[in-house]
Design a protein around this nucleic acid. Structure first.
Length: 727
DNA sequence: ACGGGCGTCTTTTTT
DNA sequence: AGACGCCCGT
């Protein structure tokens, strides 16, 4: 069997180049996964590389599973010995075996964002500082970005001497780290950082993994941050057989610490690196690709690369201007209806891509009303639900009793008469003795000031948890979790509630148990520890079911790596896409542009782009201009779906060229003698009917008027662009 | 221990 | 607009 059959020349070259550093610049839809999987298979089957000498790192579990499946179909059982996983899961695997060497217990807990928040709140409180000035979200953001850059609290404090705010943040950071340590817990960033620390301080461990990972792959290299970069460097130092795959044009996580320089500077960091560009696209039509190319070429910070395809021209990209977000949603719904009724596409082949999650609402409303089934990716995650977090907290406490965050979460859930006053007494005592909360209540008599009742309740609690700790050793996972759900009285309390909400929660818990069953099937030797680590590294896209008959709605970010025959890119307006605050920085604007590029390249056959004239964001209705990115698209292959429809709705439309769309709105109405508006004037609005002006004020060279409409209530309008006339 | 009222915030989120 | 967190009253 040949592993280069059916590949193009560039792809073949990438498969055959197995020794030394290699950068594969893989454009969207250029068959990168195919190259990666074939390259691994080729190495194993033809070059006699041992599977256990291969490490493949991806960013998502989904990508990891896909790779496992595809490589597995080429090499069979040997797949078992290859380390394929996300950065985080690979690190967990290494840490589970070795973290005791840097002073943690191997049963460590992984804290998610919510746990981090709880912890940081505690730190701020303990520092006794003005919490108006030190917002948890801001501080968490600073800490996370420092961690991404591998800067510890000490360096930060030193670098900010004399700066009260920063110094204080540094102290909070320091406290945060100490608390994590004390709870035997690691946050997501720590998984990488502690692995680096482990390798740096233990030469034998480092050598072991360097020898083991003789061949290394990293997918989505453009999204790596400093810490991940350092980790890869450590791993690959010995053999330098490092193959990274990425696309600088698809770097959209800069705001999370992804450093685009990692990919732009690969040749500098790894001399003698070979670079292969994959520019042939197998996914999209020529028309779609032309639009994508003409957008991305406006960026400066990029490698020179241009996608091309042998695919057909396809249908023109269709642009639609809507009146407001409801109108926009109706257009999308109608179009999907037509596509489905005419038998051209299934609902599951259609996706709606937006910039912010909040935009999904208008689509949901319209789709629900029209009975079109849909699913939303993102939003409230399964594992973020209260009942799931509660049960997980129980499991974590059982597994790692020094985890105070989990302790606090469950100590009085369900209610067992242990209130805030009692908890405070425990805390005071524990902070004196320096032990964990759970350890403190094991000797409950030693804690001063507790009531008889509280003491009793606490004893019952420790008896229960201790029993669980003993049980987990002898029971299988699913039975054990069921036991916890029942014996804690959690289900009981929900059943008593007898509300629809409580029933949903019970359903969710059942779902959680079936997650455990699935886990047990895949991991026969899996322990509670493994299970907890596994689920804390899961995301929403991972659980996306395929092949059902509904339209997918998701943010552009979540859509990365996916493809759909029909894509609706919606909300293409200045201030929304690109986002308002990205406008003052060139690099942020470029990231928005890459985001737009990612969106466009998700489409295989048909691409619709829509924008609305009027949009309500945060309860504020404003007029918006079409996105600048629209003006970067070539007029020639874009069909303005606008005209016909607007005419039927009675709106004026003009024949201005595409690049002038922005001006169209400004021009309209300017000659209508609107200057004489004052408080009390009666106006008629195209959509909202008659109203009375109640306020007039100047706003950035324009007049903003506030109008009380008879039916629709109070609206703010910009005089120059609002479709109103004075009556 | 719980609920109501009020102020605040609101981009994206692979782990 | 809507969600969330916090404070205070019961």
């Amino acid at each position: 069997m040949s592993f280069v059959e059916g590949l193009n020349d560039r792809q073949k070259e990438a498969v055959l180049h197995t020794e030394g550093p290699l950068l594969i610049l893989a454009g969207a839809g250029s068959g990168k996964t195919r190259v990666l999987t074939h390259r691994i298979a080729y190495m194993i089957e033809e070059k006699e590389v041992f599977p256990n000498n291969i490490l493949a790192i991806t960013f998502t579990n989904k990508a990891a599973n896909e790779m496992k499946e595809r490589v597995g179909s080429l090499v069979g059982d040997k797949i078992e010995d290859i380390w394929i996983g996300t950065f985080h899961s690979i690190c967990v695997r290494i840490l589970r075996m070795n973290i005791n060497k840097i002073g943690y217990d191997r049963s460590f807990t992984i804290y998610d964002t919510a746990d981090q928040k709880t912890l940081i709140k505690e730190c701020i409180k303990e520092q006794n500082v003005d919490k108006e000035m030190f917002k948890e979200k801001t501080i968490l953001g600073i800490i996370s970005s420092l961690k991404d850059k591998m800067k510890g609290p000490d360096t930060y404090i030193k670098a900010n001497e004399g700066n009260y705010y920063n110094e204080t943040v540094g102290k909070i950071y320091d406290l945060y780290e100490k608390k994590l340590r004390k709870n035997n817990a690691l946050d997501f960033d720590d998984l990488i950082l502690k692995t680096i620390q482990l390798l740096r301080t233990n030469p034998d461990v480092l050598e072991f993994y360097q020898r083991k990972f003789r061949y290394i792959f990293v997918d989505e290299y453009q999204d790596t941050n400093k810490a991940q970069y350092e980790l890869i460097k450590l791993f690959s130092e010995r053999y330098k057989n490092l193959c990274v795959v990425g696309d600088d044009d698809q770097s959209i996580y800069g705001w999370r610490g992804a450093d685009i320089r990692n990919i732009l500077d690969f040749e500098k960091d790894f001399p003698d690196a070979k670079i292969i560009k994959l520019e042939q696209n197998y996914r999209s039509t020529k028309n779609i690709l032309t639009v994508a190319n003409s957008i991305i070429k406006n960026n400066n910070e990029r490698k020179n690369k241009k996608l091309w395809t042998d695919n057909i021209d396809g249908s023109p990209v269709i642009l639609n201007k809507a009146f407001d977000e409801r109108d926009e949603a109706n257009f999308v719904a109608e179009t999907i209806r037509e596509l489905v009724d005419s038998g051209k596409h299934k609902p599951s082949e259609c996706a709606i891509l937006y910039r912010t999650n909040a935009q999904s609402r208008s689509f949901e409303e319209v789709f629900m009303r029209r009975n079109i089934s849909y699913k939303i990716v993102g939003g409230l995650k399964f594992y973020d639900r209260k009942e799931i977090k509660d049960i997980i907290a129980y499991l974590r406490l059982i597994q790692n009793p020094v985890d105070d965050i989990s302790f606090r979460r469950v100590i009085n859930v369900p209610k067992r008469g242990i209130g805030a006053a009692t908890i405070e007494k425990i805390e005071n005592y524990a902070s004196q003795t320096g032990e964990s909360l759970y350890s403190a209540i094991l000797d409950v008599e030693d804690i001063p000031g507790l009531s008889k009742r509280a003491t009793n309740n606490l004893t019952k609690f420790t008896d229960m948890i201790n029993e669980f700790i003993a049980m987990k050793e002898v029971m299988d996972l699913k039975d054990f979790i069921e036991e916890v759900v029942n014996d804690t009285g959690y289900i009981n309390e929900l059943e008593k509630e007898d509300t629809i909400e409580a029933t949903t929660r019970i359903e969710n818990l059942k779902e959680f148990i079936s997650v455990a069953i699935d886990f047990e099937m895949i991991n026969e030797e899996g322990t509670l520890e493994d299970f907890l680590a596994d689920i804390s590294l899961l995301s929403d896209v991972d659980n996306m079911e395929e092949a059902d008959e509904s339209v997918t709605m998701l943010t552009v970010h979540s859509a990365k790596g996916l493809e759909f025959p029909v894509v609706f890119l919606v909300g293409m307006e200045e201030g929304l896409f690109p986002m308002g605050r990205a406008l003052d920085s060139e690099s942020e604007l470029e990231e928005e542009r890459r985001l737009c590029y990612v969106a466009v390249t998700r489409a295989e056959e048909v691409l619709y782009i829509t924008y609305a004239n009027l949009r309500t964001i945060y309860g504020n209705t404003t007029y918006s201009l079409p996105s600048r990115f629209l003006k970067e698209m070539p007029r020639a292959i874009i069909q303005d779906g606008d005209e016909e429809r607007l005419n039927t709705q009675g709106f004026k439309t003009s024949n201005l060229s595409f690049g002038e769309i922005g001006k169209k709105d400004k021009l309209r109405g300017m000659n209508k003698n609107k200057q004489n508006v004052s408080i009390g004037s009666k106006v008629r609005h195209k959509k909202w009917g008659e109203g009375t002006v109640v306020q007039v004020k100047e706003k950035s060279g324009d007049m903003e008027i506030v109008v009380a409409f008879k039916e629709q209530g109070i609206k703010k309008l910009l005089l120059s662009v609002a479709p109103i006339e004075i009556i």
